[in-house]
Each structure stands twice: as structure tokens, then as C-alpha cells.
């Protein structure tokens, strides 16, 4: 099962973030997702919202470029995440910047939901720049939309288990997994939003899930610049993902 880790660019500060991301690579994470801070990360829960608030001040293009150069040497895939609402005025130059930085692909978590009628054009723009477009879907994405998105793209797909990151709500992992699997035959699906415990990871792993993404659960370690805590958390995750 692939492991994707989410970090907000510039949080807790550029230098510490590099250390954490480097550590994540050393501990075998397959993918890193780096979020561009914005003022309204509406689909994020309290923990990640806080990282955006503080990262808006510390974010720097130069540090991002340096970090990407560093990471690409390790053969790790690094994806950019941005709220489309924050780049809506000039998506073209943002997409070009993401490409120039050396990201493998781009995720726009609010694109399909809040800009449904622009989505196809934007996806083609992203792919036209040689970037992978990672569709973000959830249980609230209608079947016809999932089918259309998967026809438009070839990448792996991010599947949000909950309506927001960093919250906990009663779910039935099995029925979610089966529905996602059936609609996205042959595609690699990475499940995220609300994953923090070993039992959730084991359950997804037992179901045969291809990948998981973890974000909110890392924020505490980042906030306290707690590399040892982060390391043992990831070792725990590694022990239950096969």
C-alpha cells in the first residue's frame, strides 16, 4: 500500500519542513503532497487550516524550488496541491510555475466541486503542461462525474473519505472502498481525509486498498518540530501497511 504524506508549504517554517520531508522520504513514503498556503482552505479541518494561516507568512518560492530540487534527486514523486479559488485569476501562470518547480503533478481539491464547468478545460491545461492531474473525488461525487474524470485522466486518484480533513465521523470503510473500487476499475486509488489510526490503516490494507494519504495527523509533530515523534509515528504506519 502506497503512502502519501501531506504538508503545507512553509509550515512550520521552510527549513524545518525540508527536514520533515527528507525524513519522510528516508522512511519510505512513496509520494509527497505539498499544499500552497491560501486564505480559505475550505475543505480542510482545524489542524490543516491552522497550518495555512501560519504558512501564508512564511511561504517562499525559493525554498520551494530548492526543496523540489533536493527531493527529485531521491526519485520521490512530489505533487502540488492548491485551492483553485486561490489561483482562479490566473491559473495558467500558476500551472506553469508548478511545472517549473519540478512537481510531478497537481491536485486542485475544490476544482470539480466548486468550478465544475471549468474543470475539463483546466484538466487539459494541466496535462498540456506535462503535469499529471490528480482528480479529487469523494463519496459525494456522482457516478457520472467519477466516470468522466477517470476518462479524462490517467493518473492515480485521490479519494476523500470524509467531507473535510481532520475530522472524525462514523463511516463504513468497506462500503466506501467497494463503491470506489467498482467505479474506478483499473485505477490506483489513494484514500485520505481523517486517516490517523493503525486500525483504520489495517482495515484499508485488509480490503486491498492501493494507497493512503495522511496529513492532519502529522501537524502536531510539525508544530513542535518533533522529528523523533514523527519518525515513530511513520514507523507505526509502515508496520501496518503491507
Amino acid at each position: 500500500m502506497n503512502l502519501t504524506l501531506y504538508f503545507t508549504l512553509g509550515y512550520p517554517d521552510n527549513k524545518s519542513l525540508s527536514l520533515f520531508v527528507g525524513k519522510a522520504r528516508d522512511l519510505g513514503a512513496e509520494r509527497i503532497e505539498l499544499g500552497f498556503p491560501c486564505s480559505d482552505p475550505r475543505y480542510d479541518g482545524p489542524a490543516i487550516k491552522n497550518t495555512h494561516r501560519s504558512a501564508l507568512l512564511s511561504y517562499s518560492d525559493n525554498s520551494t524550488r530548492e526543496m523540489l530540487e533536493d527531493l527529485s534527486r531521491g526519485g520521490l514523486s512530489v505533487y502540488a496541491l492548491a485551492y483553485f479559488s486561490s489561483i482562479v485569476d490566473d491559473p495558467g501562470s500558476f500551472i506553469a510555475k508548478v511545472r517549473d518547480f519540478g512537481f510531478s503533478g497537481l491536485m486542485l481539491p475544490d476544482l470539480i466541486t466548486d468550478y465544475f464547468h471549468d474543470a475539463e478545460r483546466i484538466i487539459r491545461n494541466v496535462e498540456g503542461e506535462g503535469l499529471e492531474f490528480i482528480p479529487f473525488v469523494s463519496q459525494a461525487t456522482p457516478d457520472s462525474v467519477i466516470t468522466k474524470l477517470s476518462a479524462l485522466t490517467e493518473s492515480w486518484i485521490y479519494y476523500g473519505l470524509l467531507p473535510s480533513t481532520g475530522v472524525s465521523l462514523p463511516t463504513s470503510m468497506e462500503s466506501i472502498y467497494l463503491r470506489a473500487r467498482e467505479l474506478l476499475r483499473g485505477r490506483e486509488i489513494c484514500f485520505g481525509f481523517g486517516i490517523r489510526t493503525a486500525s483504520q490503516i489495517s482495515e484499508l490494507s485488509a480490503l486491498g486498498a492501493d494507497g493512503i494519504a495522511i496529513g492532519s495527523a502529522l501537524v502536531d509533530y510539525l508544530e513542535h518540530r518533533d522529528i523523533p515523534g514523527f519518525t515513530s509515528f511513520l514507523e507505526g504506519v509502515n508496520a501496518v501497511r503491507n
Binding site: 465544475f116 459525494a140 462525474v145 467531507p163 473535510s164 475530522v167
Partner: peptide, 17 residues
Amino acid sequence: EPLPPPLSRSQEGSSIE
């Protein structure tokens, strides 16, 4: 079209949770 998810606008914690 996709159903937009509920949003939390509370300053403390999450109104979804």
C-alpha cells in the same frame, strides 16, 4: 454535479465534528 460538502465556519474546532 458533485454535491459541495458542508463547511465548518467555526473559529474553534469543527462544526462538522
